[in-house]
Write a protein that binds this DNA or RNA. Structure first.
Lengths: 178, 178
DNA sequence: ATAACTATTGAGAACTATTCTCAATTATAC
DNA sequence: GTATAATTGAGAATAGTTCTCAATAGTTAT
């Protein structure tokens, strides 16, 4: 049986309709999947899952819908360094579910953490104000994310310099270093 | 005349050699460009600039070199949401030049800021320790970045929901809303 | 220096996530 | 119901990045 939906359908519909946009089965399917199936889905994953309940859904539509939702602020899009965008239901900094990400640069596992969220959010808000004042930007959002090696991947670990977000040193050389 | 180099060639060479890797003119060219020509260069930009001083440089080599440098921690790679990776000389959290980014989601202008850097770094370090303890990750780095509209782009602004990092609402509809 | 070993290179093909095109469909307002 | 314009699916197109492979050239041992 399907998991419960985490989003308020009415609220979503209102937001969508607000712009002269339309409620369609395709959009419903995408929203439902995103809300039921935990987090961090790639477009492809959303597509697969949503296709099950709306079989002739097209991949392009999924991309379009995800873009729309992102622009409307209902979904947030982020990337973990593996060249695939990930999407998850957006929750404002004040929402209970608000979290940040800790990602493994090797296997791309993502951990949601809430530790220090309050301090982080506070600091971010302060910084945001300062930056707005100083540089005249109208700040819309922020990214804050830690990267490293998860316990499993750290096992066959290897040193990796500071600033590297691309994971382990891949050995691109041809021969065996023996 | 070329700007001064910001990197210590000896240190870099040592780092590269450390892994059985070689110093080559191509790598020198890439490093020099990155160090002389400010920040935030795309691979293409590095390629163009480096080609001037090493004419038969190949684009693939630039990518390979940038990847290597990133893995070695000498360069940091980040993206601003325009589907092109950006590279800049890496400076550890303690270095004078350490900064974070404020990017315009519309024109992709990037502002380096140092305000609150100290507080941010402090908090990040604390969080990092906590996360390491709690989740067993070996944390290698972090991303912290603000996105919004620069003064110029905010001019012809438009509302954009929280969480949207992709810029203004693009109107994908066919007809005129009149 | 010279030779041997193997990392690196350039060029272009290949790859892949994402966007675009367009005719057909369908949600919405009247 | 009808009209209107937003949306859709399918596949083509795009673009940044990676891969392949034979040729080249750092590096180390001699």
């Amino acid at each position: 049986m399907p998991k419960r939906k985490d989003h308020d359908p009415d609220c979503c519909c209102r937001k969508i309709r607000g712009q002269g946009r339309r409620i369609t089965p395709a959009r419903h399917a995408v929203l439902d999947v995103l809300s039921e199936r935990g987090e961090h889905l790639t477009a492809e994953e959303v597509f697969k899952a949503a296709s099950r309940r709306y079989p002739n859904l097209g991949l392009a539509t999924v991309y379009r819908t995800l873009e729309l939702m992102t622009d409307l602020g209902m979904v947030s899009k982020f990337d973990t360094g593996d060249d695939k965008a990930r999407y998850e239901f957006a929750e404002g900094p004040s929402a209970k579910g608000h979290h940040h990400h800790l990602v493994c640069t090797s296997c791309h596992k993502i951990v949601d953490y809430k530790d220090f969220i309050k301090e982080e959010t506070q600091l971010l808000r302060r910084t945001e104000q300062e930056l707005t004042k100083k540089y005249g930007f109208r700040i819309i959002g922020h990214v804050i994310q830690f990267c490293g090696l998860c316990p499993a991947c750290a096992g066959r670990g290897q040193k990796s310099g500071w600033g590297s977000r691309e994971g382990l040193l891949k050995d691109t050389r041809r021969g065996q270093s023996k």
